[in-house]
Design a protein around this nucleic acid. Structure first.
Length: 473
RNA sequence: GGCGGUAUAGCCAAGUGGUAAGGCAGAGCUCUGCAAAAGCUCCAUCCCCAGUUCGAAUCUGGGUGCCGCCUCCA
């Protein structure tokens, strides 16, 4: 089986993946600051890591997956105050919604979702260590990380320290020794949530929570650190500085960053306001279609979204899903005995080859786009086989197993359930189609066509196949 | 201005130095009572210039365009 290779932002190349502990993979992915509804841009890393985790499981790895919530933050405090509610109550609402959105997308939950508000002591401990080691200093109730004390600063984003200072466009806090120094602890302001600390009441700065929480749950060094490419600087750079200055060990072995989703050639972003919420999306489209869209492009590339994009995607996606559904039906009805003719052997070999291609694609920096491409080759192959009358259960079963493993279990882009066929609808449709079949036998085509047409008006598509009529909503 | 990434058919998109996966759209055909579905066939020499090489979309150098980061951001 193909070994796994991963593109590492740190080294800017694909590397062979070797976990720190044999058979076990530890993953930290930066989550969100919960002050508004999750949007499509947030869905991307979640779906990608969902696939990576499931793929690792299929390869026999155990995983420990942590994703944080930064629930102590300026925006949260501000908006909660506008609404007149407690900051934590405010953020908890969006955390719940976030988790529900990810559930709706078929994302398996992480093992731990640590929140900043639950880890203040750990954060304080870490800051204390950094001060003791001379990497941080307190100044009138604030604590800053001293960037010049950490020689590796800039190694992830490939920035030079001097140039970072030159590019500063914001007002520099006069309490800082250097403009590039960043806050580990912020002195409390009037009316803001605050915790006691050795430096007085206050709250953590933005980056320190990830260092403290990843250390707590995953240890000094773990395997994957993920997140959007917009986090490379300053967030991940600062995490590295804090963690590595404190422990002396590398923070993560592989840095994995996903590309942005653009709306009209511009990054989808809460601050720009051009977002499309996940809640809205899952109302309108099947989760599997959304995942299909997200996974059709390699995770490191940028991805476009625009009105009608999902409709466009759905045409190809429907062909995939319909093929799998029909295949499954035919397999369930197929005779138990395999005839194993010569033609059947040939296609079995082809299917075998496709499985290898998919494995290689996923192992090669999680190339889901290529894996989907191969799945479409299988679609064509198995449709052609059945088109020409092939029905060897061995062949059907093999094809089905690939669709099941990759299409359903790992990528999550295929759904078999017809939610709208539940209740009375199913039996009623069966009755109607049975009667229509009798009309067709009697060559009463005008009436049969009328039924099909009227059902079409209702959004029910009927097609006549050699195996009898099929319908879908 | 600095740093990173990217540039492949009408659109989306993969691509490991050896002569361009896949999807959508389009054209023709087969099957079908019709329709649909499905199948078959057709549809690109890879931004520009120079170089390395027997051979480059793939490597090197130089351009140009686009995106991201440098301020909160998945």
């Amino acid at each position: 089986m193909a070994g796994i290779k991963v593109y590492n932002t740190m080294t800017q190349q694909k590397e062979k993946f070797v976990p720190l502990r044999p058979g076990q993979v530890r993953v930290y992915v930066c989550g969100v600051t919960p002050y508004s509804s999750a949007h499509l841009g947030h869905a991307r890393p979640n779906v990608i890591w969902d696939v990576i985790i499931k793929f690792l499981h299929s390869r026999g790895y155990q995983t420990l997956y942590v994703q944080n919530f930064t629930d102590v933050d300026d925006q949260i405090i501000e908006r909660a105050r506008d609404e007149g509610v407690e900051a934590l109550e405010f953020s908890n609402r969006f955390i719940r919604e976030y988790l529900e959105d990810m559930d709706a997308l078929g994302v398996k939950r992480a093992d731990v979702y640590p929140k900043v508000s639950d880890h203040i002591p750990e954060i304080i401990d870490l800051i204390r260590v950094l001060i003791e080691k001379g990497h941080a200093y307190s100044a009138q109730g604030d604590v800053f990380f001293h960037v010049n004390s950490f020689p590796g600063y800039g190694k992830l984003s490939k920035q030079k320290r001097e140039e970072l200072l030159a590019g500063t466009r914001f007002e520099v806090d006069p309490a800082k020794r250097d403009a590039a120094d960043f806050a580990l602890w912020k002195k409390a302001k009037e009316g803001e949530p605050a915790w006691d600390s050795p430096w007085g009441p206050g709250r953590p700065g933005w980056h320190i929570e990830c260092s403290a929480m990843s250390y707590k749950y995953l240890g000094e060094t773990f395997d994957f650190h993920g997140g959007g490419s917009d986090l490379i600087f300053p967030h991940h750079e600062n995490e590295i500085a804090q963690s590595e200055a404190a422990t002396g060990s590398p923070l993560a072995r592989y840095w994995v960053h996903n590309g942005m989703i653009n709306f009209k050639a511009e990054k989808m972003s809460k601050s720009i306001g051009n977002v499309i919420s996940i809640g809205e999306l899952v109302q309108r489209y099947p989760a599997e279609l959304i995942r299909f869209y997200l996974l059709s492009t390699h995770y490191r590339s940028n991805l476009e979204y625009y009105q009608g994009k999902l409709e466009e995607m759905s045409r190809g996606w429907t062909r995939l899903v319909d093929t799998v559904k029909k295949l499954k039906d035919n397999l369930d009805q197929a005779p138990g005995q395999s005839s194993a003719g010569n033609g059947d052997k040939k296609i079995l070999e082809k299917i075998e080859g496709m499985q290898q291609e998919i494995e290689e694609a996923l192992a090669d920096d999680f190339n889901t786009a290529m894996a989907i491409g191969v799945l479409f080759e299988l679609v064509r192959e198995i449709n052609a086989y059945q088109h020409h009358g092939g029905k060897d259960p061995l062949v059907l079963k093999h094809a089905w197993e690939l669709f099941k493993l990759y299409g359903i279990d790992i990528l999550g882009i295929v759904n078999l359930a017809d939610s709208q066929k539940t209740g009375l609808v199913g039996p009623l449709m069966e009755l109607l189609l049975e009667l229509r079949e009798e009309l067709r036998k009697e060559k009463n085509f005008p009436l049969a066509d009328k039924i099909r047409e009227r059902l079409g008006d209702l959004g029910v598509f009927v097609e006549d196949t050699p195996q009898g009529p099929r319908w879908k909503v």
